[in-house]
Amino acid sequence: MAAYRRSARPRFILLLLVLTAITLVTVDTRANGGGLTGAIRGRAHDVFAPVQSATHSVLRPIGDFFTGAFHYGSLKRENSQLRDQLAQARGQALGASDAQRELKILSEQAHLDFVGNIPTVTAQVVDTTSSNFEVSIQINRGTGSGIAVNMPVVTGGGLVGRVAQVSSQRATVLLLTDPTFSVGVRLTTNGSVFVADGTGRGNPLNLELVDATTQIKTGDKLVTSGLNLEQYPKDIPVATVRSVKTAPGQLQQDVTIVPTADLSRLEYVRVLQWSPQS
């Protein structure tokens, strides 16, 4: 009898835990990110925010050292490239200042800048995700700054992602490359519209439903399509075509695209206070 009890109790507890976990999963899946479980997550983010900030500011050198040690070669190469670019840019800046003034006036008149007159919130990236299966970042602005779920997030380079979760001081931004992410895009060369899907950290995005007759080649630019009820405003740069493959006899082309924004080194991002209705 004693032996039976010894093995039965942990098993009973495991059963209890598993059932509790499944209940939680069910409740959260039904609430779809909102509801009680969503509120608990938001509260946890707010509670931990100050501790995380402090920890990160104290321990950031460790991460920097690690990055430096593992990417020494590429950093060195990049440094020399940047020096070269800086020298060129200095030369060009002298000649460009007048043209720049003109351009500024023009773009102000015509709203050529892709953000246009949508109000934005600038936020600092405080943490990247702790998970190995999702690609997201945390930013230091939340509902207090007027951020809401599903708002598009951009940098100067183009679309970065969308707000997936928001608490009063923090928001989680799901990046383009996350496997759950998809965005309607338009080819700037001929206006064809496709859907781009994320495929995981560091991987290029897939372009869906590109039929074999579509004219598309490496280097073509893609912007958000802004079709009816699309989650993103029109004409935000999204990606550049990296590769196009057509297998013989296939009806569709295999197209991969890379984001124009550098997603691996985000420091500041802009959240567009935009929703499909506005």
Partner: peptide, 26 residues
């Protein structure tokens, strides 16, 4: 092990976005 696993998983789940709360706990 089971109890700590549940608690640790729940904490981890609080900071995940695309997977439901409780999956890591499970």
């Amino acid at each position: 092990g089971g109890l700590v696993g549940f608690a640790a998983g729940l904490l981890a789940d609080l900071f995940l976005t695309t997977t439901p709360l409780g999956l890591s706990a499970l």
